[in-house]
Amino acid sequence: MDQGFELKQVTFRGYGIKVLDNVSTEFPLHSCTVIMGFSGSGKSTLLKVAAGILWPDEGEVCFQGKPLNRMSEKELLEFRSRMGFVFQDSALWSNLSVYQNLSLPLQFHYNKKIEPREVDRTIQKLLLEFDFKDDVQYRPAQLSTGERKLISFLRALALNPSILFLDDPTGFVDNVTAERILKNLKHQKQEGKTLIMATHSPELTSQLADFLIIMKEGKILEHGRLKEVVHSRDPDVIEVLSEVLSEAAVYDTDILELLQDDSSTE
């Protein structure tokens, strides 16, 4: 595996509360790492810290061996142009239209190197693939929560990034859209892209994850290959997995079977 992200003893405090507590982990490139945990366990914060959106209070985040906080402005911009981030609450720019939400990253990163026609072509391709039928001149407030989530996903794909941070990518979306997102993510993975995802979805986990991280109260309980983690006999891991997946009753047999069942319904 290529050297990707490495978090070294990262602590992050939000408003005085330790959200991440001395977390050390790695996200290899060209693979999919899924982060699971109860709501409020620090999954979203871990994603944001790894992506360099939030800066840790202690510890450091390295990308390909280089700490993000020691990157030059140019290097950081180059790093950000390679990544896309899907926010849990969409975080669309509310004073811009759907079209502008999708075009701004392209205009920013390519500026005069990209023709408006090319921007339009890229956006139309994305909208068509996901069968988005509403007016692209709508503001985010005029969309449903699921549509906003979809546009957030498409915005992250606009730059064709090689690293995707996904915070609950199928949350709030309908089943058909969730299927399309899953299909797209499988395609991204096949192309060798790096996926780092926080989700509660057994389906996404079983079909995409190479590695699984289990979090509780800002700490990493377990981190390893999917099969290893789901076979863990650590009672805390079992508790998190069973409750997160709402399958406490079946967990005592084998969570892997549950995950494999999901993949067989593909």
Binding site: G52, R80, F85, W93, L104, F108
Partner: peptide, 20 residues
């Protein structure tokens, strides 16, 4: 007010994520 709202709805984080 506009900037405060942008922070609450994580729009500022979205700008940062794209390097803006």
């Amino acid at each position: 007010t506009e900037l405060g709202n942008a922070i609450i709805s994580h729009e500022i984080e979205a700008y940062i994520s794209f390097g803006i």
